[in-house]
Design a protein around this nucleic acid. Structure first.
Lengths: 154, 154
DNA sequence: TGTAACAGGACTGCTTCGGTCCTGATTGCT
DNA sequence: AGCAATCAGGACCGAAGCAGTCCTGTTACA
């Protein structure tokens, strides 16, 4: 699997949406309900994701009436690894890496203690090279979205 | 997190162990209990991992008495991505990638449909470049493996 | 002063994983 | 030929983490 959480996926969706400033309606911030309506993600979940992202500094928040959220940086300056780290916590494949070295039950026997570090680094490096702008533009070209492949959607 | 399962970690441990043919005792195969004793991983778990690996072809099995397991290829010819794919299933970060395209509830709205593919590919590429031999050699220097830490094993 | 929106929790149902066990099929040895 | 050792392939259960919701403040604008 090597699956990342759904929240991370939502975070990307939300941030990409956040980059598309709705023309005219709001000055520069967007509210949770608005993003929820635009993306199809449930409102409470959007709010949760945004709060997490705000706590990490990837988005900035404006409190009070007429408040909302805004990207702290443009899409091309935010790497995927940052988003993952913000939502899912630091990238750590196994318990051995990171700091918790004294948990492994088979201490002296385990012949791969710490060996996941290079793997972690490789993934970290690969993810740092991809920005949200890449994810927004790179994939599915508009031509690909033929109506036949999108049954009754959009 | 981006955490992979413990089973994958065990798989690496077991396969590295499998590469170290116990001198003299067995001709070329090793049994589940033997590997369990050598690695400290519980026997049923070792058996489960080995069965999974055998089903994928990463190790070959010899049934019957005096049977056991053996690496299908040398360590340096087995990439980490193969092991992960064998144990945890295909590398797919989110449900959107791979084949299941019709599950996403917010079909037409989701602005990053398929966008995870490049991320997946990047990770796949990073992981393909690392072999089990790398994981075995890179980290913890041999000096660390003092005999005192290998109690009554083999 | 009232309202709209974020902040930051706690809480619960659920999925998935980790781990164990059981019953067969196969092969080597006696 | 019979027995024992070993793999094969499930089913099964408990635990842990996640997804999602909700509630109570706090802030800022009209």
């Amino acid at each position: 699997m090597l699956r990342l959480s759904k929240l991370t996926d939502y975070a990307v969706v939300v941030m990409v949406r956040l980059a598309e400033v709705s023309p005219g309606s709001n000055p520069d911030v967007q509210t949770s309900p608005g993003i929820a309506a635009a993306t199809g993600v449930p409102e409470p979940t959007v709010a949760k994701v945004l709060k997490t992202l705000a706590a990490t500094g990837l988005v900035t928040s404006q409190r009070g009436a007429r408040g909302g959220y805004r990207l702290a940086r443009p899409l091309h300056a935010i790497s995927v690894s940052e988003v993952i780290a913000a939502v899912d916590g630091p990238i750590a494949l196994v318990a051995c890496v990171d700091g918790s070295l004294n948990e492994c039950e088979s201490q002296g026997l385990c012949p791969v203690r710490g060996r996941w570090d290079p793997v972690n680094d490789a993934i970290e490096r690969a993810l740092s090279g991809i920005t949200l702008a890449d994810m927004r533009e790179a994939a599915v070209p508009p031509l690909f979205r033929v109506p036949a492949l999108m049954p009754a959607a959009e």
